Simulated scan of single mutants.
Amino acid sequence: MNRFVLVCTMATGLALGPVAATGWAAQQHAAVSAPRAAHPVGEVVSDAPLNVRQRPTVYSGTVKVLRPGQRVLLNCQQRGGWVDGNPLWYRLQGSHGWVSARFVHNHQPVRAC
């Protein structure tokens, strides 16, 4: 069976030519074989330093501060205190703190906590 698969793969490669290396087939292979990030990446989009809170509310204590443009790993999201019309908060990976989704752009979907 392995020889059959090899022959079919080679025949397909010859038939598709360069499309297999750069076109739809390569994108499909890359999507299947590329490892997914363990945690989505977020980017701070505030103009000022962003407080990382102990709990998902602005009334909670500050754990640390993130600078504008800084990238962080997002563990999960949940509803919390509203910030400029946005009730979502992201729990950060590693620091065990929360940031308002109003000031962090998620580059991938974030799972619920």
Rank of each mutant, 00 (worst) to 15 (best):
A38W: 05
R55C: 00
P68C: 04
P49A: 12
Y90K: 09
V99Y: 07
G42M: 08
L74R: 04
A15N: 05
G23L: 07
A112V: 09
G13A: 12
S46Y: 05
F103L: 12
H96R: 15
V58F: 04
S100K: 02
R55I: 01
R71V: 06
R53C: 10
R79K: 13
T12D: 05
A37I: 01
K64P: 00
L6R: 11
A112N: 15
N86G: 06
R102T: 12
A20N: 03
G13N: 05
L16Q: 06
A34C: 10
R55L: 13
G81N: 00
Y59G: 09
T62G: 05
A48H: 14
P109I: 13
C113T: 01
Q108A: 15
G42R: 06
N2A: 07
V41G: 02
N75M: 11
W82I: 12
P87E: 02
A48W: 04
A31M: 12
V45Y: 00
V32W: 14
T22E: 11
V104I: 08
A34L: 07
T57V: 13
Q27E: 14
S33L: 12
H29W: 11
A21R: 08
V32Q: 12
N75Y: 15
H105V: 10
V44Y: 04
N86D: 15
T22G: 14
S46D: 15
P56A: 07
T57P: 03
G13W: 00
Q54G: 09
S95H: 04
N106E: 15
R111F: 03
L6I: 11
V41M: 10
H105F: 03
G85T: 11
L14E: 06
P18K: 13
F4A: 15
N106F: 01
T57E: 14
V83D: 07
V45G: 03
T9E: 08
V58W: 05
R102D: 09
G69K: 02
L88E: 03
A38G: 09
G94I: 08
Q28W: 03
H39N: 12
G94H: 06
A101M: 08
S95I: 10
L66R: 03
G69C: 05
Q77T: 08
V41F: 03
W89R: 02
V5S: 08
L50G: 09
A34F: 02
A38Y: 04
M1Y: 10
V83A: 01
N106I: 04
G23W: 01
H107S: 12
G42P: 06
N75P: 00
A15C: 08
V52Q: 03
G17Q: 12
Q93V: 14
E43K: 13
Q70V: 06
N86M: 11
P109N: 10
R53N: 10
L16H: 00
G69I: 01
V32I: 13
Q27I: 07
V44D: 10
A25Y: 00
N75K: 14
R71P: 03
W89E: 01
R91F: 02
Y90V: 10
Q27L: 13
P109T: 12
L16E: 04
T12Q: 13
P40I: 04
L74G: 08
W98C: 02
W89P: 00
A30G: 02
H107I: 06
Q77W: 13
R71G: 07
P56Q: 06
Q108L: 07
F4T: 15
A31Y: 06
S60W: 00
P40A: 09
P35M: 03
H107A: 14
N75W: 08
A101C: 09
V110P: 10
R36W: 03
A30R: 14
